[in-house]
Computed example of a mutant assay.
Amino acid sequence: MECSIPKQFLRLFLIVLAININSSSATKPIASKTSTDFIKASCSYTTYPTLCFTSLASHASFIQTSPKLLAHAALNVTLSTAKSTSAMMFQLSKSLLMKPREAEAMQDCLEELSDSVDELQRSLAEMGQIKSSNFQLTMSDTQTWVSAALTDESTCSDGFDRNTKNGKVVWERILNIAHLTSNALALINMYASLHA
């Protein structure tokens, strides 16, 4: 009898342990899968869905299934990329031997990127002030700032010849920011349309 009690206890312990392991491992992937499915579905409405998903998937636990948090995360990712690209472009402008026309285009581009960063920061600030009483006005302002950032990014890349080594490097970096900005704008528009 003494041997059967520990065996029964051991069996019960193992059963409870197995149930806990199965229930905790089953719950976590479902929640994460739901979030990533939401991001993937939302990104399918953007112009660059693959870039959208890859840039936002790592934020799934923050975004969950919230259109507002999705738009906010897209803006944050875009702003972060714009800042790092601007810093990289500044370093590039100091280290590369450029023709006078390229050097001038680079200076113009740095100014456009600075404006773009400022406009993306303003759009994030606007999104942070959204309330039901000011939703339409705040969203309109946010859309305006993000559209202006996209225009500045496009203007930046216009000054470079894509057939030159320097021009190709700059153009590819700016194009990435412009695509992220376009996606962020699409997700902001989607969020705004839910409250129209």
Rank of each mutant, 00 (worst) to 15 (best):
L137G: 01
L75R: 01
P100S: 08
N189E: 14
A31K: 15
L17K: 09
S44G: 08
S133H: 11
A57H: 08
T34K: 10
L150C: 00
L150G: 01
N183E: 06
F135V: 00
A196H: 15
C43P: 01
Q8D: 10
A148F: 06
H72W: 11
S23Q: 13
D108S: 10
T142N: 03
Y48G: 03
E2G: 08
L180S: 00
F160V: 10
T46Q: 02
E111W: 13
L180G: 02
K40N: 12
A71G: 01
S193L: 07
N183W: 05
L79G: 02
A178F: 00
E172R: 12
L194E: 11
M89L: 15
E172H: 07
Y45S: 12
T142S: 08
S55F: 04
R173H: 11
L113G: 03
P49R: 08
N163F: 09
L185M: 07
H195D: 09
S44N: 12
F13T: 13
P29T: 12
T85F: 07
T151G: 01
F135Y: 07
M88K: 15
L180M: 07
I19N: 04
S114R: 13
G128L: 05
S133G: 03
L56P: 00
S32V: 14
L92E: 09
A149N: 00
A60D: 02
K168E: 13
A186S: 10
S44A: 15
K99M: 12
M106S: 10
Q136G: 10
D161I: 13
D158H: 12
E2I: 12
A73V: 00
A184N: 02
Y48R: 08
S44H: 07
T164D: 11
T78A: 12
A87Q: 04
M190W: 02
H179R: 15
E104W: 01
D37F: 03
K7F: 11
I30F: 15
F53S: 06
E126D: 06
M88Y: 14
P100L: 05
I63N: 04
S132D: 14
